[in-house]
């Protein structure tokens, strides 16, 4: 340790304000960079899921009309399309995405 005392460390030989404000700003920038991807990830996954659900409904409609199904309706797991409401899915979306976000 270069400094003799804790207060000497904080004072930085009279330059404490400059040194500590620079380090505080650096900490804020690093924290922003670290946190923002996780916020973005939650948003994007939510967006992709929502789009997936919309696709499902379209597939369901297509099935009723007995037209050509979309090429990748792999997500259409349920045998009975009418039971495939999006309500239960939405319920599980919240906790699931929260669980997934830390890598």
């Amino acid at each position: 340790m270069y400094f003799d005392s804790w207060s000497g460390f904080l004072a930085m030989g009279g330059h404490g304000f400059y040194v500590w404000s620079a380090y505080a700003f650096a900490l804020a920038v690093l924290a922003y960079n670290l946190i923002s991807p996780f916020m973005a990830k939650r948003r994007v996954i939510e967006k992709v899921r929502r789009q997936e659900r919309l696709m499902h409904r379209k597939v369901v409609v297509d099935d009723f009309r007995v037209t050509t199904g979309s090429s990748d309706n792999s997500g259409n797991r349920s045998a009975n399309p009418t039971l495939q409401k999006h309500r239960p899915e939405r319920q599980e979306a919240g906790p699931e995405s929260a669980k997934r976000s830390p890598q």
Partner: peptide, 12 residues
């Protein structure tokens, strides 16, 4: 905390 201060600028 561990580096010495500068001869001219001190701790800044």
């Amino acid at each position: 905390a561990f580096s010495p201060s500068d001869y001219l600028q001190g701790n800044s």
